[in-house]
Computed example of a mutant assay.
Amino acid sequence: MKKIIFTISLGLAIITVNGQQKQGKVLYTRTVQMMLDVVVEDGQSLPLPPTNASKLEVLFGNDQSLRRTVEEDRPEGFEGGEGGMRMITVVGGADDLSYVHLTTGQVVEQREFGAKNYIVADSIRKLDWKLTGQTSTILNYPCQQAVARLIGKRTMMSMENGEMKTKEVADTSEIVAWFTLSIPVSAGPEYPGQLPGLILGLDINNGRIVYKAVEISGDVDLAAIKAPSKGKKVTAAEFDREREKIFAEMQRNNSGRMRMIREDH
Rank of each mutant, 00 (worst) to 15 (best):
residue 107 V to S: 06
residue 206 N to T: 11
residue 176 V to S: 04
residue 188 G to F: 12
residue 38 V to M: 07
residue 202 L to S: 00
residue 153 K to V: 15
residue 158 S to F: 15
residue 49 P to I: 07
residue 84 G to E: 14
residue 116 K to A: 08
residue 127 L to D: 03
residue 140 N to G: 03
residue 149 R to M: 14
residue 65 S to K: 02
residue 96 D to G: 04
residue 100 V to W: 04
residue 203 D to I: 04
residue 118 Y to E: 08
residue 61 G to F: 02
residue 14 I to K: 13
residue 126 K to R: 09
residue 106 Q to D: 11
residue 209 I to V: 02
residue 33 Q to H: 06
residue 222 L to P: 03
residue 257 R to L: 15
residue 210 V to N: 06
residue 230 K to Q: 15
residue 38 V to H: 12
residue 11 G to K: 06
residue 28 Y to N: 04
residue 142 P to Q: 14
residue 188 G to N: 04
residue 205 N to E: 09
residue 16 T to I: 14
residue 103 T to M: 11
residue 77 G to L: 10
residue 25 K to C: 03
residue 140 N to D: 13
residue 261 I to M: 08
residue 102 L to R: 09
residue 162 G to F: 00
residue 185 V to E: 08
residue 257 R to F: 07
residue 34 M to H: 01
residue 244 E to F: 12
residue 89 T to E: 02
residue 142 P to N: 01
residue 222 L to I: 00
residue 66 L to P: 07
residue 25 K to I: 00
residue 244 E to L: 13
residue 93 G to P: 07
residue 152 G to V: 13
residue 248 A to T: 10
residue 76 E to R: 04
residue 1 M to N: 01
residue 245 K to D: 10
residue 244 E to A: 10
residue 200 L to V: 05
residue 52 N to C: 14
residue 243 R to I: 00
residue 207 G to F: 01
residue 243 R to C: 07
residue 196 P to V: 11
residue 197 G to Q: 12
residue 214 V to Q: 09
residue 80 G to C: 09
